[in-house]
Write a protein that binds this DNA or RNA. Structure first.
Length: 485
RNA sequence: CGGGGCGUGGCGCAGCCUGGUAGCGCACACGCUUGGGGUGCGUGUGGUCGCCGGUUCAAAUCCGGCCGCCCCGACCA
């Protein structure tokens, strides 16, 4: 019994943070590194990132942005050029003071984000309204010296995508900001199967240097919110700081209007926390490195050859049908062990094939999104690729449906401050609280200090939804508060 | 940076109080066995006991200092 326990991960309901770490380590998504706060992305974890990245990259390019790459090192003086930006990022900068054995004349900072160096270049590339809009994106690593780190959610170094655009008009830049928010939301729901709340950030939660920050927020399995992507309307703040000016069609100099937007490897943490269960990971098929695994079952040597032969003849048609399939032909491991192993790794579909199935020309299919023993079905070998594709589609849809239901179940409206406070009491999250808020930072601070919930998003669609602020009673719009990661 | 905990094979721990041969489970290697939900048995590999210094005939154990990690708070995608 005691040995049995070691094979399982910490139950999710018992200790969410312990469960989260166990799943990531056991599913081999990531490992700790010798450098504090930094993690290693193992092949299975990185493959998810690649799948996610490739799909998002296509969607970003479809909006007209093009990929580029800017340097890792930024002159220290650049950060200081935008007042709020420097204030926001100074505490968490990694600074390089020496190079080639000599102290540098001007220290270099390791980019925490690339606004400054990209805008420095934009200033040199933009002269005329004909140069606009200018839209670039880069996939890169950034470093922020965080005080407290958690795998994927907050690490000293992380990978992300950051888009930076410059436009001739405010309206155009604002439209771009909202367009990218929409890209993120659709991407999250269609590819990651994560339902997202979207809206505006409060002033306190705004990006350092932005006029307005928009966000997509996910709700994790423990009732805490996670910021899954942001899109910033920068106004002309950076244009003024970096002197990004263009001649308009009246031959007058104008500052450009700008945006920036990004998502990070934090999304891997969201995948774990939204879909995972006590059996381990549950991956949406669209990002699963292996979508279908074939587990052969045999007793005797002659069965082994026969079963493996049949299994191999199943594999090729699956691959031809565009399915990322894998045959687990490892010897010396029982089928039961393999079932649990692949469930831990979150593979959406498992195909079991043994002597009985070979004789019948069929296989057993098990799906990871539903308690598997009950959900096993038989499929004929000839129909396997089509049946697998159908099942993968179903799983993708079902994971989103399940996550939506979980989010809805943890979303409540409050008009009584005491009730809100009770809801947020205790460890773990308290779900999403929809309240009326006057947008006065004083009320926001009080909520944060007394309930530990923060403003996650202010919905963009506000018509006919005004009411008395839950704290002060003055009239305000709707806002979502939650305890967040 | 404040509060708490912990450093002993790859991982999880016991041993420390009361100094004297470094031990257990898992993992790993090999063999047999088993195989439709985490097989069982046997053999074996692997440790400067976080670091530095002190006490002692003798230190994982006692004393002093340092370092690192984890959890809880203040900052954050």
């Amino acid at each position: 019994m005691a040995e049995k326990q070691e094979k399982k991960v910490t139950p999710r309901s018992q200790d969410f943070a312990g469960w989260y770490n166990d799943v990531i380590l056991r599913a081999e998504l990531a490992d700790y590194s010798p450098v504090r706060g930094c993690i290693v992305f193992r092949p299975d974890g990185f493959a998810i990132w690649e799948a996610l990245r490739d799909e998002l990259d296509r969607r970003i390019k479809r909006t007209g942005a093009r990929n580029a790459y800017f340097p890792l090192f930024i002159p220290q003086s650049f950060i200081a050029k935008e007042a709020e930006h420097v204030e926001g990022f100074s505490p968490e900068l990694a600074v390089v003071t020496h190079g080639g054995g000599k102290e540098l004349e001007e220290p270099l900072i390791v980019r925490p984000t690339s606004e400054t160096i990209i805008n420095h270049m934009f200033a040199q590339w933009i002269h005329s309204h004909r140069d606009l809009p200018l839209m670039v994106n880069q996939w890169c690593n950034v470093v922020r010296w965080e005080m407290r780190t958690r795998m994927f959610l907050r690490t000293t170094e992380f990978l992300w995508q950051e888009g930076h655009t410059a436009h001739a008009t405010q309206a155009e830049a604002e439209a771009e900001t909202l367009l990218m928010l929409d890209v993120y939301r659709n991407f999250g729901e269609e590819i990651l199967a994560i339902p997202l709340l979207w809206g505006r950030k409060s002033a306190a939660e705004r990006f350092a240097g932005a006029v307005e920050t928009y966000t997509v927020e996910g709700l994790m399995g423990d009732g805490r919110a996670l910021q899954c992507g942001t899109s910033h309307f920068l106004g002309q703040n950076f244009a003024r700081a970096f002197n990004i000016r263009y001649l308009d069609d009246n031959n007058e100099l104008q500052f450009a209007w700008q945006t920036s937007w990004g998502v990070s490897t934090r999304l891997l943490g969201a995948l774990v926390m939204v879909h995972g269960d006590d059996q381990g990971l549950r991956l949406p098929p669209r990002v699963a490195p292996i979508q279908a695994v074939i587990v052969p079952i045999w007793r005797k040597a002659e069965e082994r050859d026969q079963v493996l032969g049949a299994a191999r003849s199943c594999l090729a048609p699956l691959e031809r049908a565009g399915i990322r399939a894998y045959l687990d032909a490892r010897e010396g491991l029982t089928p039961g062990f393999k079932f649990n192993d692949w469930e831990m790794r979150g593979v959406p579909v498992r195909i079991e094939i043994g002597p009985r199935d070979v004789a019948a020309g069929s296989v057993i299919m098990a799906r990871r999104d539903i308690a598997s023993k009950e959900a096993k079905v038989t499929a004929s070998i000839g129909d396997l690729p089509a049946a697998t594709n159908r099942l993968l589609d179903e799983i993708q849809t079902n994971l989103l449906t399940q996550a939506r239901a979980a989010m809805a179940a943890q979303t409540r409206s409050f008009d009584d401050y005491e009730a809100l406070r009770r809801q947020m009491e205790g460890e773990g999250g308290g779900g999403l609280a929809e309240i009326h808020w006057c947008e006065d930072p004083v009320c926001e601070t009080r909520i944060r200090e007394e309930t530990r919930a923060t403003c996650r998003a202010i919905p963009l669609n506000q018509q006919g939804t005004r009411g008395p602020c839950i704290v002060c009673g003055r009239e305000g719009g709707r806002a979502f508060f939650a305890k967040a990661y």
